[in-house]
Nucleic acid binder design. Structure first.
Length: 204
DNA sequence: CCACGGATTGGCT
DNA sequence: GCCAATCCGTGGA
């Protein structure tokens, strides 16, 4: 396990900025989930931005509902939703209060708690090389590996249960920009960002 | 109340 | 590459 001690938790002020800025800067940062006796950690390698003010694919485009209300808070909260009758996806709320913006965490690279993640995903510890790369290479997979569910909806990311550690900002030539995946509206927006050549990005 | 479809995944052709 | 699984948020009657 890599030494995560030198890195500090991202502060509130990181999250309350513009959603596209936060999305790009989240690449390379480390998602942490702490439980009793265990710590799960994964480097964020792929994200997508959603902005309900101009983006028809955002859950907040239709206005405030019970499901999306956390996205209208100021930045620094966790938005978890359930989809396709099977999967959870997790987002980082960004911007100022009432903006309705968030960043979807689409893929991560496991750093710590890999046995726990393996059990959560495949109910076993010994994995083939293919299974290792399949641990967290998609938004539903990240949530399954980290055991992130509806109970984590609305968590404050400046708290001690789920948070993100700072890491040096990536050079722009390490970041690939593309259209978002799996949506039917506002498909042309180039709001997907991922780390060039990383093995854990969701292929497609 | 009912119908529709989704910010996905994994299995099969 | 295609498609079923499977729940629930959302909107219309």
């Amino acid at each position: 396990m890599k030494n995560l001690q030198p890195f500090k938790k991202l502060p509130k002020s990181f999250y309350t900025r513009d959603v596209l800025t936060v999305a790009k800067e989240l690449l390379g940062k480390v998602l942490i989930k702490k439980e009793e006796g265990s710590l799960l950690a994964g480097k964020i390698v792929e994200v997508e931005a959603y902005d309900g003010s101009i983006d028809e694919a955002a859950h907040t485009f239709i206005g405030r509902t019970k499901r999306n209300e956390i996205m209208f808070n100021d930045g620094g909260y966790f938005y978890v939703y359930f989809t396709y009758g099977a999967h959870f996806c997790c987002n980082v709320v960004t911007g100022k209060k009432d903006h309705g913006t968030a960043v979807l965490i689409r893929a991560a690279e496991p750093l710590a708690g890999i046995e726990r993640m393996s059990l959560n995903r495949f109910n076993k510890i010994l994995l083939s090389e293919k299974e290792k790369l399949n641990l967290t290479s998609g938004p539903g997979k990240v949530c399954e590996a980290f055991d992130i569910t509806r109970e984590h909806y609305g968590i404050d990311l400046t708290g001690d249960k789920i948070f993100i550690l700072d890491r040096p900002k990536l050079k722009s030539n390490q970041i690939v920009i593309s259209k978002r995946i799996g949506i039917k509206k506002s498909v042309e927006l180039p709001w997907r960002f991922y780390i060039k050549d990383n093995l854990y990005i969701s292929k497609r």
